[in-house]
Simulated assay, not measured.
Amino acid sequence: MRLRKGKRQNADHGPEVDNRPGAPAATPTLAVELRDVRRQYGRGAGTVHALAGVDLALPRGTFTAVMGPSGSGKSTFLQCAAGLDRPTAGSVFLGGTEITGMSENELTELRRSRLGFVFQAFNLLPSLTVEQNVLLPMRLAGQRQDRRQAQEVLARVGLADKAKRRPGELSGGQQQRVAVARALVTGPDVIFADEPTGALDTGTAAEVLGLLRNAVDALGATVVMVTHDPAAAAWADRVLFLADGAFADHLERGSAERIAARMAVLTSHASRAGAMAGAAA
């Protein structure tokens, strides 16, 4: 990755260190760090506070699920944390690098080389083979396309024999496993998963979540997953609950039942708050 002006890279090729005067100090042991991140849309009376001062510190090698009622800010959180959207205020660090002031080109380069993404809709290119889809992040980042590495990650997700197939020849679960392999191939600082099991049946969803869990446990990957499904969130080390643009609660290694109960409370509070706001208007 090209170094930004005013930064140096550690001799051991560790995270970038920002030496600019007045720049906030990174915490190298953290994979994801948000400091008082706010995201507003609109102005005046119509302003929407999608994120209202989010603070978060996620160590490397952890699996975190983020849940919340509709309109709580889940999508905005993921977009700001992954550098897909710019916060109105606050600082975001990924892998020890402060990304908030990066240019669009720098953010694009970072996403290609140091982040992995798994989306609900798979986002595979139908004209490419499975192997070519897995290698796409390397190709876009200008790196050498390592076919042996592609074979290794495809074997890890149980698709070593599907390398020459096209996505249209695979089931939905197999396509999502290709997406997981694509996310893993560059050894990213963080894998962001946005409703990765939303289009899958229960059994196939468990297979995909098992792959993400194994990436954390066996490879030391860091996974941040937004989901509405308590059963999916139960695979995580920690579940964070968003409400009104801020984290309102959390559970450590919660069961699906406990997570669902906590979500029911938050949703009930959100509904009552909405009703009161409507009555006041």
Rank of each mutant, 00 (worst) to 15 (best):
M1A: 13
R4W: 06
K5W: 09
K5V: 15
G6H: 06
G6S: 10
Q9K: 13
Q9Y: 07
N10C: 10
N10W: 06
N10H: 09
N10T: 15
G14C: 08
G14S: 13
E16Y: 07
E16V: 14
R20G: 10
A25W: 00
T27G: 04
T27V: 14
T29E: 13
L30A: 07
L30K: 01
E33D: 03
R38Y: 10
Q40T: 13
G44H: 04
G44Q: 08
G46I: 12
A50Y: 02
A50G: 09
G53F: 01
L56Q: 00
R60F: 03
R60A: 13
G61H: 07
T62H: 12
V66S: 03
M67E: 06
G68D: 05
G71K: 02
G73S: 10
L78M: 12
Q79W: 08
A81G: 10
A82W: 05
A82C: 10
A89P: 06
V92C: 01
G96F: 00
G96D: 02
G96N: 02
T97C: 05
I99P: 00
S103M: 13
N105R: 11
L107D: 09
R114T: 08
F117W: 08
F119K: 06
F119V: 13
Q120T: 14
A121E: 14
N123L: 13
L124Q: 04
L124S: 05
P126M: 08
S127G: 11
S127N: 12
L128S: 08
T129Q: 08
Q132H: 14
L135R: 01
L136E: 07
L136R: 03
M138A: 14
L140W: 07
D146T: 09
R147T: 15
A150L: 04
V153R: 00
L154P: 01
R156T: 15
R156P: 12
G158E: 06
A160W: 11
D161I: 11
K162D: 13
A163M: 13
A163Y: 05
G168N: 05
Q174I: 06
R177L: 03
A179M: 03
R182V: 07
R182K: 09
A183C: 09
L184C: 09
L184K: 02
V190A: 05
V190Y: 01
F192Q: 04
P196L: 03
A199K: 04
A199I: 12
A199L: 08
A199S: 15
L200I: 11
L200A: 06
T204I: 11
A206F: 05
E207G: 09
L209S: 01
L212F: 07
N214T: 15
V216F: 04
D217E: 14
D217N: 12
A218S: 14
L219H: 06
G220I: 05
V224E: 02
A232T: 03
A232E: 01
A233W: 00
A236N: 03
R238I: 14
V239T: 15
A246T: 15
A246P: 05
A248W: 05
D249R: 07
E252Q: 13
R253H: 13
A256I: 08
E257N: 09
R258Y: 02
A260K: 01
A264H: 12
R272C: 10
R272N: 10
R272H: 11
M276N: 11
